[in-house]
Design a protein around this nucleic acid. Structure first.
Lengths: 109, 109
DNA sequence: ACAATACTTAGCTATATGACTAACCAACTC
DNA sequence: GAGTTGGTTAGTCATATAGCTAAGTATTGT
């Protein structure tokens, strides 16, 4: 029952982590580059990165002493798909209601 | 900085709450009807509903002793929009990279 | 009026989350 | 090889979250 969507949504439920995702859309970046501009201690920031990585939204590799973090765009797709699925369910229902209203209107005599 | 998206995403970061959203897409329902099939104490379940309501995803009204809960579809839209915005940023970047690659290819002589 | 129904409130517990400091290791740079 | 840079580990703390039981309130049904 506990879906992978859990970790996905909770990864995005934090402004710092959403900001990181937005930065990474511009392209991969080193940990310290990502950290710049976020007013928090590095270890704290690193835990945010770990949450993102555990959720599958990003991956990272270390070369020398520099760790580079990269977006995993397919992961974003998974979330977008969830919304699409539910939005369309909703819209389907709206259509049915509209048809019903229309029917009632026409048979109102 | 702390966006309304925080409460929105964290509301969806729980399987029970996503299930409730999915049920509610079929139409409004009473608290006890929603509770059926969720193996947890009612007070616990009520707190999930409160989280959903605080996030703006659902609204509820009480008539007599029955509280009826209803989806707020515009809220789902807000989330879908976030994904769309970021997906398209990503795709924009891919396009630019593709054009760059193309350019490099053509000027390779 | 009494009982049953449909929540609601209060209070507890355990675990998770987000923040910090301090100390550490590994790899460049001079 | 000594210092600096880039990241990591360990440990603490405060608050939030998700669950429970027990008891309460307010309608509705008989």
């Amino acid at each position: 029952m506990t879906n992978q969507l859990d970790s996905f949504f909770s990864a995005l439920a934090d402004p710092t982590r959403r900001a990181v995702v937005e930065q990474l859309i511009q392209g991969p970046a080193a940990v310290s580059a990502l950290h710049d501009g976020h007013d928090m201690a590095l270890p704290t920031f690193l835990r945010h990165l770990k949450v993102l990585e555990d959720s599958g939204l990003v991956t990272s590799t270390k070369k020398g002493r520099v760790r580079t973090v990269e977006m995993q765009p397919e992961a974003l797709r998974a979330g977008a798909d969830w919304f699409e699925a539910h939005k369309s369910m909703w819209e389907g229902r709206m259509d049915r209601l509209a048809r019903l209203a229309d029917h009632l209107e026409r048979t109102r005599t």
